[in-house]
C-alpha cells in the first residue's frame, strides 16, 4: 500500500539497465508515474514540461553532474531530490554543497532501502495528514495534525517541543533515536547539554500518552542512548 503511488518521479541515470531496474523497483513499490532521462538535457526538458514530485538523480551524467542539473531544476521546481552515487566520497560533497539535496544513496543499494528513503522524503515534503496524522496507542490516539492526544472525549494538547519529539520518534518508530538526534530536532545544532531538559519534556510527553507514566509502554528509555517509540503495526 503506497499512499504516494500517484506522485511523479523522475529518474536520471546514464546507464540504461540501471534506469530500467530503478523503474521496475519503483513500479513494484506501487509508483505509477515514472519518467526516465539519460542525460541532464533530457531530464531538464521533462522537468520543465511535467510537474515532478521527486527527482532521483545519478551524480554522474554524460553531459554534467547531477548536482548542477538539480541547481537548474531548482530554478522552477521546489520538489525534493535524492542523489544516487557510485562513490562513497560524494557523501561529503552532497552534504557540503548545501544544494538542498534531501537524501543520497550509494550504489549498490537494496530496493527496499531505496523505497524507504523515497517514501521518507515524500512524507517529509508532502506529509499527508491522513497517514502521519494519527498514531494509535493502546487506549488513546495522537493527532499530529492538531497536536493533541485524544483519550475518549478528553483532549490533551501537545506543546511545540513535545510535538517535534513525538514526530521524530514516530518517524523512527520501534528504533532507538539518540538523545543527540532528539535534541538536534528540538533545539537545532548547538544543542549540547540538553539531555536533562530533554528528559523533562519526555516526562511530560509520557504523562500525556502513557497509561502509567512510571511504567512506560510506548516511550521506552534506552539507557545512555536515547528513546524508542514502541507501537504495533498500524
Amino acid at each position: 500500500m503506497n499512499e504516494f503511488a500517484e506522485y511523479r518521479i523522475l529518474i536520471a541515470d546514464d546507464e540504461k539497465d540501471i534506469l530500467k531496474m530503478l523503474e521496475e523497483i519503483l513500479r513494484r513499490a506501487g509508483f505509477v508515474n515514472i519518467y526516465k532521462a539519460k542525460s541532464c538535457a533530457e531530464a531538464l526538458s521533462i522537468a520543465q514540461r511535467i510537474p515532478i514530485s521527486l527527482y532521483l538523480l545519478d551524480v554522474m551524467l554524460p553531459d554534467g553532474d547531477g548536482f548542477y542539473l538539480f541547481e537548474s531544476i531548482k530554478q522552477f521546481s521546489h520538489s525534493p531530490a535524492i542523489f544516487i552515487t557510485a562513490r562513497g566520497e560524494n557523501e561529503d560533497k552532497i552534504r557540503g554543497l548545501g544544494l538542498g539535496a534531501d537524501d543520497y544513496i550509494v550504489k549498490p543499494f537494496l530496493s527496499q532501502e531505496l523505497i524507504l528513503r523515497i517514501i521518507a522524503v515524500l512524507r517529509r515534503t508532502y506529509s499527508k495528514p491522513r497517514t502521519i496524522g494519527r498514531i494509535r496507542l493502546s487506549d488513546r490516539e495522537i493527532d499530529l495534525e492538531n497536536a493533541v492526544v485524544t483519550k475518549g472525549n478528553e483532549e490533551l494538547p501537545l506543546t511545540a517541543k513535545e510535538y517535534i519529539l513525538i514526530k521524530k520518534l514516530y518517524e523512527n518508530k520501534n528504533k532507538i533515536v539518540t538523545n543527540d538526534s532528539l535534541c538536534m530536532a528540538v533545539w537545532g545544532s548547538g544543542y549540547y547539554g540538553c539531555e536533562n531538559t530533554l528528559m523533562v519534556h519526555i516526562r511530560h510527553l509520557r504523562k500525556k500518552i502513557e497509561e502509567d507514566p512510571s511504567k512506560p509502554k510506548h516511550i521506552i528509555t534506552a539507557r545512555g542512548l536515547g528513546y524508542r517509540l514502541v507501537i504495533g503495526n498500524e
Binding site: D17, I18, S111
Partner: peptide, 24 residues
C-alpha cells in the same frame, strides 16, 4: 582503485537489484 570500485558499484547494483526482482 577508486575508479575500479566505482565501476564495480553500477553492475553490482544491477546484480543485486535483479536478484531482488527475481525474489518477488
Amino acid at each position: 582503485i577508486a575508479g575500479i570500485s566505482h565501476d564495480i558499484r553500477t553492475p553490482l547494483s544491477l546484480v543485486i537489484g535483479n536478484a531482488e526482482a527475481l525474489e518477488g
